[in-house]
Design a protein around this nucleic acid. Structure first.
Length: 297
DNA sequence: CGGCTTTGACCTGCGC
DNA sequence: GCGCAGGTCAAAGCCG
């Protein structure tokens, strides 16, 4: 509806978001490989294809970052988060409450998922668990054998002491599971809005307990509820909270951020500057954080 | 009392 | 077929 107005530039560039480039700078390649090694289970689970091939473009993102994206990437989650993600948000309906990014950012982690618009047409979709039912379909009404339709997912890493970020929406925890090969459990949250099917998972990296990996699934069909603590929202939170499909992200694993980014970002960074978001449009967001050349791939 | 968290059970898919 | 792991359900308990 209102979230689908017009053509989504993001989807335009992510509709075939299994980017395949060739080769890449060493530092970033290492970074990517690092991420694959350490978080491959998570990434693969999310269908993310973070390949060394992306290094070249990530490096360009690096340049972009030096250009003036930092304030936009800065996060201000409640608690002591240092946001690690840069994400582009697709179809955003209105500017909502995401208008005042505040400081407190750090590790700009990026990640390139092959965010499939996964409407269930993907034969490789593995609907592990969930009783195999789509969120929209109550368990009782669910037909046996019906495949759960997985919503597009979006994730980011956050260096944080607390796990639950405030992203402007209210969440209800509906489950927690121990994760294999990880001492940290994974928590499952669902948007408290009864009409909203967005879910999110929160888990800590087994490799770096200071890293919180938050995965959003689905798309909010409503506006955020605002921010009780100061009313400031980070750009990432805005992205996350209003996540829509057709989004591409970039991840740098903590500690493996390309040196140039570290130079410009420092880790962590306390950014006091509060700068209004440009327009919360796809164009604006993408323009901020997506390296040139990536967008139309 | 309503909303939320906790937690064990259950379901499903996948690999062997 | 079986076991494992992930995801969800739902009852019970907690809290404001």
């Amino acid at each position: 509806m209102e979230d689908k107005e017009g053509v989504d530039p993001a989807s335009e560039f992510t509709s075939n978001s299994s980017w395949a480039l060739a080769g890449g700078p060493d530092s970033v390649s290492d970074s990517v490989n690092y991420f694959f090694d350490k978080e491959s289970n998570i990434l693969s689970e999310f269908d993310w294809n973070l390949q060394p091939d992306h290094a070249e473009q990530i490096d360009r993102f690096d340049e972009l970052d030096r250009a003036d994206t930092r304030p936009y990437l800065a996060g201000s989650f409640s608690g002591s988060h240092s946001c690690v993600a840069a994400a582009a948000c697709g179809s955003v309906s209105g500017s909502g409450t995401a208008s005042s990014p505040a400081g407190g950012a750090a590790d700009v982690s990026t990640l390139i998922p092959s965010v499939s618009s996964s409407s269930g047409e993907d034969p490789s979709e593995k609907y592990k668990g969930s009783g195999g039912k789509p969120p929209e379909i109550p368990s009782k009404a669910r037909k046996k054998g019906q495949k759960r339709i997985r919503q597009p997912r979006f994730a980011f890493m956050t260096k944080s002491e607390v796990e639950h970020l405030e992203d402007g929406y209210r969440w209800r925890k509906y489950g927690q599971k121990a994760v294999k090969n990880s001492p940290f459990p994974r928590s499952y949250y669902r948007c408290t809005n009864s009409k909203c099917t967005v879910k999110k998972r929160v888990e800590r990296s087994s490799e770096d307990p200071t890293i919180v990996i938050t995965t959003y699934e689905g798309q909010h069909c409503h506006h955020s509820v605002g921010f009780p603590r100061g009313g400031l929202i980070s750009r990432e939170a805005a992205f996350a909270g209003r996540f829509t499909p057709s989004v591409s992200q970039f991840y740098y694993p903590h500690g493996e951020i390309p040196a140039s980014i570290i130079r410009s970002q420092q880790v962590p960074i306390e950014i006091v500057e509060s700068r209004p978001l440009p327009q919360t449009t796809n164009e604006g967001l993408l323009g901020d954080i997506v390296p040139p050349g990536i967008r139309n791939r």
